[in-house]
Design a protein around this nucleic acid. Structure first.
Length: 506
RNA sequence: GCGCCUCUAGCUCAAUGGCAGAGCAACGGACUCUUAAUCCGCAGGUUCUGGGUUCGAAUCCCAGGGGGCGCACCA
């Protein structure tokens, strides 16, 4: 990889990028010729930039601490002043200025400095000092090249703005745009906090199949693939729900999965074909326990990742501080619509209400679906502050337990913030015959051409026949939660490598 | 899928029918306290691709490609 058979520069066909890369190869070769390994196998670091800043906060200008450190990171800026230079070294914790006086450095370090380019990984050794201007620095005596950046970095001031490139070459986005890095730090911290919370609540983290004979647990168009060994077609999971409940049947009373789900549907600012959901199931709980858990998880995520409870979302300022109101859907609809609706109302009446509020009903929609669409299209967009909406029609909740005194409504909640659904949960339906019957109805509808119907899953019904205890289940849309916490508008900004068309060849 | 917008140097952007330019990065030089360092010099182009209109196209038209936004479906 490092053999340096450098052609003369004028040999290189026009495009500038090739010339820039050739220039950097040449520098790498010069170091190698001087006996310096441009790709050392390891480096012993003794300090992090962020930790040094913390430890030496408030130090006066022009101080020598006597502390010797070895730092490693990427060079993000160099300011050369003849025999004195300054460089900025960025590591995982932050950045640190290197003060580089040729007179104080070894010959090898001077050679490395001489060939240094923005983007190079280096290791530096020296004394922690403050510069005359008071900036904490490392008065460098030794400097090692750890890996050469052959390609030039984006503009140091403007960074990388082209969205296409930011998504396709996320690594460049991350190293050039601190804001982008920050978004993902929030993501990682939030997910880690939710894991910790689940562990503290004695949930076990499990993994269920992504490749499934039949995608269930939600209503969505799946991706398909094929297993050669078994010669069968498989779907990619659209939700882990059915498998997780089977684990509760099996005696794992508290399970959760941070599940990548795949839905072969539209791509938009708020929809990605692959997205992450946290699903959790807790035996002996009901929908109220599900809301408690959801609220605790979201708060834990917000606290750990940002330390705040208020977030800007579009034009609104959202305060996540709980407890969040828990309101009945049918009551909220009554207030919004000026009349009470219910899945037992005559279908024509519900159709009329829909049309009066700009909702265009489809012929396949039953009364429950009509009520749900009133929620989704009329009520939900206006729900800005966090609110648990409780009680959804059974017709659109095929896996939820029906309400004790109303067989057409289910003990189900949705968490709504800034007009979007963030979480969903319910008391799980655990009566096998009722589940089988619901599947029968929906799979008949599916066979009749209704794409929005849950397929029957006999293995799941059979598992219910072994006994699913009363169980609370929740699902939280992680990507959307991160969008809220990181205050970004596009789901692609919170997914490291979002799905894109392949780059055109050549 | 439909509509609108967008694509120019490695990066960020100008040039709106008349010589394709600037800043940063690079390259050569000066510089021992800078921090978007400064100064002098030099170089860098398939203007996304293909076709068309025109004396002349980055610019106007057509087709294609990538991306973004909006709508629809969905979470």
């Amino acid at each position: 990889m490092t053999n340096e058979t450098d052609q003369p520069a004028d040999d290189i066909a026009a495009p500038t990028i090739d010339a820039l890369i050739a220039e950097r190869r040449k520098k790498r070769a010069a170091l190698a010729d001087a006996g310096i390994d441009p790709y050392p196998s390891r480096f012993d670091r003794t300090a992090l930039a962020g930790e040094l800043h913390q430890r030496h906060e408030g130090l006066e200008a022009d101080i020598r601490t006597g502390e010797q450190v070895r730092l490693a990171g990427r060079v993000t800026a160099v300011r050369r002043h003849g025999k004195l230079s300054f460089a900025t070294l960025a590591d995982t914790s932050g950045s640190m200025q290197l003060l580089l006086q040729v007179a104080a450095m070894s010959d090898q370090a001077a050679a490395v400095l001489d060939s240094l380019d923005l983007g190079d990984w280096v290791g530096a050794e020296g004394e922690v000092i403050t510069s005359r201007r008071g900036e904490l620095s490392v008065d460098t005596t030794e400097l090692w090249l750890l890996s050469k950046a052959l390609r030039p970095l984006p503009d140091k001031w403007h960074g990388l703005t082209e969205t296409d490139t930011r998504y396709r070459q996320r690594e460049v986005d991350l190293l050039a745009n601190p804001d982008s890095r920050k978004v993902f730090e929030i993501r990682f911290a939030a997910i880690a906090a939710m894991r910790r919370h689940m562990e503290a609540e004695h949930f076990v983290e499990v993994e269920t199949p992504i490749l499934q004979p039949q995608a269930g647990g939600a209503i969505a168009r799946p991706f398909f693939t094929h297993a050669n060994a078994l010669d069968i077609d498989l779907s990619l999971r659209i939700a882990p729900e059915l498998y997780l409940k089977r684990l509760v049947v099996g005696g794992f009373e508290r399970v959760f999965e941070i599940a990548r789900n795949f839905r072969n549907e539209g791509v938009s600012t708020r929809h990605s074909p692959e997205f992450t959901a946290l699903e959790a199931y807790r035996a002996f709980g009901d929908v109220d326990d599900g809301m408690d858990l959801t609220e605790a998880l979201v708060m834990a995520a917000a606290q750990a990742s940002t330390g705040r409870t208020t977030f800007a979302a579009g034009e609104s300022e959202i305060d996540l501080a709980g407890p969040w109101p828990r309101l009945q859907l049918l009551d909220m609809l009554e207030e919004k619509l000026g009349r009470r609706v219910h899945p037992t109302d005559p279908r024509n009446d519900l159709v009329a209400v829909c049309e009066a509020h700009g909702v265009t009903p489809l012929p396949t929609w039953g009364p429950g679906k009509l009520v749900f669409e009133l929620y989704d299209q009329v009520l939900l967009p206006g729900l800005v502050d966090p609110v648990f909406v409780i009680g959804f029609p059974v017709e659109v909740s095929p896996l939820a337990r029906h309400t004790a005194d109303d067989p057409t409504m289910a003990d189900r909640f949705e968490l709504c913030i800034v007009g979007r659904e963030f979480a969903n949960g319910y008391s799980e339906l655990n009566i096998p015959e009722e589940q089988a019957e619901r599947f029968e109805v929906s799979s008949a509808a599916k066979a009749g051409g209704d794409a929005e119907a849950h397929p029957a899953d006999q293995a799941f019904v059979r598992s219910l026949e072994y006994g699913l205890p009363p169980t609370a289940g929740i699902g939280i849309g992680i990507d959307r939660l991160i969008m809220l916490l990181a205050e970004v508008e596009a789901i692609r900004d919170v997914i490291l490598f979002p799905m894109l068309r392949p780059e055109a060849a050549g």
